[in-house]
């Protein structure tokens, strides 16, 4: 049942021109970043060769590529996910799901997994770019895997946040702005004071990714993502339950 719903969301994303346009732009920008980094690596290579324990292609090309992808996808995920619930409200299709023999949790999980499946495409594309370096030399597979995992978790968290934002309104654009607002606030939390280890750091979603980005997979970071995802999914379920209890502003 959850997969049926996830499939429906995935199909919905692929049938919207907006998602295709954003995905194409994304790919264009990331390819550009990839080539720039590769170019600078080739320029640096003679000097690197003289260093002992020099950073390899993976550190110079792949890691910054994933960083760039994380930032760009923070902007793009709200656009991909804004319609998830807001559009169902606007088109008044929610009763189809609400009157079907499925629980609110299944509805929310289905929508979340549908968006996640879609977001795994850019993760795959970026990882493929990183892996393509293997054609010209040795690559650090561990670093690549840590980055791919980090990006996947980051995007899943973004997806949960955007799904929640989408459940708050019946206007997809407002959902996108809200989602972006939450994500930017969380990003700024770490920028505000990069050295402190206070509450702001705890709220920062990108701070986790920075560690994955250096190849460090810490169980605390895995747990952080899991908690963030569950929290926002629960908030979404609560919000939809409220629709049923309070009425759709009718």
């Amino acid at each position: 049942m959850i997969l049926t719903l996830a499939g429906k969301e995935l199909r919905g994303l692929f049938s919207s021109p907006l998602a295709w346009i954003v995905a194409a732009l994304l790919q264009l920008i990331l390819a550009w970043v990839f080539l720039m980094r590769l170019d600078s690596f080739l320029e640096l290579q003679p000097r690197l060769a003289q260093l002992a324990d020099a950073p390899g292609a993976s550190e110079i090309v792949t890691a910054p590529l994933f960083s760039a992808a994380a930032v760009i996808l923070m902007m793009a995920t709200p656009i991909f996910g804004m319609r998830l619930i807001a559009e169902e409200r606007r088109n008044r299709t929610m009763p189809l799901l609400m009157s079907a023999p499925i629980s609110m949790t299944q509805i929310v999980l289905g929508k979340f997994l549908g968006l996640c499946a879609f977001l795994m495409l850019p993760v795959g594309m970026v990882s493929a770019m990183g892996a393509a370096l293997a054609a010209g030399g040795e690559i650090d597979l561990g670093l690549l895997a840590a980055n791919a995992l980090g990006l996947a978790l980051l995007l899943a968290t973004f997806a949960a946040v955007v799904l929640f934002a989408s459940s708050l309104t019946s206007q997809p654009i407002i959902a996108a702005v809200l989602g972006l607002g939450i994500l930017l606030a969380s990003w700024l939390a770490s920028l505000a004071n990069p050295d402190s280890a206070g509450v702001l750091q705890l709220l920062s979603v990108t701070r986790r990714f920075e560690r994955f980005n250096t190849g460090l997979v810490d169980s605390a970071d895995l747990a952080w993502h899991a908690i963030a995802i569950v929290l926002f999914l629960l908030l979404t379920i609560r919000r939809l339950d409220r629709d049923r209890l309070v009425g759709h502003g009718a």
């Binding site: 429906k8 049938s15 189809l96």
Partner: peptide, 18 residues
């Protein structure tokens, strides 16, 4: 409650599965 981007068959299959 119709998903405008689906065909009649796709939509009814979805409804049946749901």
């Amino acid at each position: 409650p119709l998903y405008r981007e689906l065909t009649v068959d796709e939509f009814l299959r979805l409804a049946a599965r749901l």
